[in-house]
Simulated assay, not measured.
Amino acid sequence: MRPLEGTVALVTGASSGIGEATARALADDGAAVALVARRGDRLEALAASIGDAGGEALVVEADITDRAAADAAVAAAIARWGRLDILVNNAGVMLLGPIADAPLEEWDRMLEINLRAVLSMTHAVLPHLLAAAELGPRRVADLVNISSTAGRQVKRGSAVYNLTKHGVGAFSESFRQEFSRRHLRVGVVEPGAVRTELRDHLRPEIRAVQAERMAAMEALEPSDVADAVRYIVTRPRHQMINELLLRPTEQDD
């Protein structure tokens, strides 16, 4: 029997990169997966691929920076399967650059996606995770928040990104203290450099610097981070992985 057989997971930002790889990994381990993102065409292709491999997936096209949309995404998964055992808060954006002359809309965007959407999704799914922990086949449930090495260290040129990822870590630790005795676990994954679309949204001059940095190392692949998520949610009921820091071997910062 696969370790997540009979469970349901919801993955945000599932249309590409870490989210897509994580959805595939959880489906491979037996979970039914709700795929949540804005790009419906990519979600449809991913759902078809999961189905072809014998899994089950639900497409939920949504902008989860809208609280009502976050609530609706959770409701769609519950309507389909009647339960939720795992939430992976993966959706995020990294808009780097100096504080001076930074476009405020970039700061707002990071706050909306990296923090507010995490809070909205967690709030919406909380009663269902608690129910799964009490009554589900595993008698444990999991919240996994995808953070970054930026949630552990601060660098110039990434002030607001650092703020959001440190915030994810602080929220996760308080969540752990509140719900651990109810067997609702929380894990934070903190990847270093990963080959994803995150850098595509940077301003051109900053994107060039990041491209040079990435070219100087063998970066992580999205599947590497998905393996970390899979490890966290498949631990025995008595074991919780609170933080998992994951860097490319060649990354020296």
Score class of each variant (00 low, 15 high):
V59W: 01
A69Y: 02
D52K: 15
V33K: 12
V36R: 10
A45E: 15
I18D: 03
R24E: 12
A53M: 03
A14V: 09
T7Q: 14
V60N: 01
S16E: 12
G13Q: 08
T7E: 13
I50F: 10
A31K: 01
A23M: 06
V59A: 04
D52S: 15
A68L: 13
I64Y: 06
V36P: 11
E44F: 00
T7H: 07
V59I: 03
A48V: 13
R67G: 12
A68H: 11
I18H: 04
L43Q: 05
V74L: 08
E20S: 13
V11S: 03
A68I: 09
A45N: 13
V59Q: 04
T22C: 03
R39T: 11
G6L: 06
T65P: 07
G54D: 05
S16Y: 04
D63E: 14
D41L: 04
I18P: 07
I64E: 11
E61P: 13
A34E: 13
G13C: 06
R38P: 11
T22F: 00
V59P: 02
A73F: 01
G19D: 10
A27F: 05
E5Q: 15
P3S: 14
R67Y: 07
G55C: 09
A32I: 03
G30N: 09
A21G: 06
V36E: 14
S49V: 06
A57W: 12
R24F: 00
A34T: 13
G55V: 05
A34G: 15
A32T: 10
V59L: 03
R67V: 09
V11Y: 01
G55E: 07
L46K: 06
R42H: 12
R42M: 06
T7V: 04
V36G: 09
G17L: 09
L58T: 00
R42K: 12
G55L: 08
V74M: 09
G40Y: 04
A75I: 08
A31Q: 05
I50Y: 08
G6T: 08
R2I: 05
E56Y: 00
E61S: 15
E61I: 00
G17I: 10
G30V: 11
L46V: 10
D63R: 10
A25C: 02
L35T: 09
E44P: 02
E20F: 04
A31Y: 07
A69R: 05
A69N: 02
D41A: 14
T65M: 01
A21L: 05
D41G: 12
G19W: 03
G13K: 02
V33I: 12
G51M: 00
G13R: 03
